[in-house]
Amino acid sequence: MLLSTPRSSADKTAIKVAVLLSVGSHPLTGRGRRAEQDARALEMALALPQADAQLIHAGRLNDESEPALRSYLGMGPQQMTLIQQPKQADVLPALEKHLRQLGPKLILCGSRAEAGEGSGLLPYLLAEKLGWPLISGLAAIESVDGSSATVLQALPRGQRRRLRVKLPALLTIDSAAPVARQSAFGPARRGQLAEVDAPVQMDTEQEGWEVQPARKRPKRLKIIKATSARDRFKAAAAKSEGSGGQVLKDITAAEGADAVLKLLMEEGVLRVSS
């Protein structure tokens, strides 16, 4: 009653979907949590009717990471495979080995991690190693059959593009995908973390890196290519934009509409060409 009954892996019609999950980090407090995009990936797998979702995390299990990992289990699945890897390890070989054993049709993951390097290269490396096609920026999976999947890719402005990809394939999910369901405390606490040993290969390249808290990026200065002193002075003394807007009072509706139209055209949000 409590949890949705998991589809048994013996079920032949079920499509095995591996979801790669990482430990996220809250943007303001840095506290461990389920990574936003990974959670959406899991949501997508759980919402897929014929999917047999396999949760996989490669990393360490400790007091810090456990609540974050368990919060994925709070979304309903009963088990997560935990590939033990030390800090600073290159998880790629371990993941590749495990995924080859598991043999999923689809691998879903967020487009980049919220902690560590967060370069977003891992899915690409994995796809390259496995020789699978990869689609990034997924918004929805429309349908999956034995040999292919039809998916929607998110484009800017809420636009979507329909793609069909041959299976097996790797799909990365970004923030346009549906929001992950709530993680419930009870199932999160009861879920199993099945630990698996795996080969460890350290990521030595990172040793040469300097990692610091993000500095605020300098605001780009408007470079004034003025020929005269007066122009340069005027540019420097000009009021910055946005300090108090323009208020049009006592005008006709037509004049008002003109003013609005002008701004809309300037901002380029109006598409009159189609």
């Binding site: 409590l2 709070g74 979304m75 309903g76 369901r181 709530q182 993680s183 419930a184 405390f185 009870g186 199932p187």
Partner: peptide
């Protein structure tokens, strides 16, 4: 509903 089902509605979650 919240702790076992994770079904706090609307902005609850």
């Amino acid at each position: 509903l919240t702790l076992e089902r994770g079904e706090t509605p609307n902005k609850g979650a």
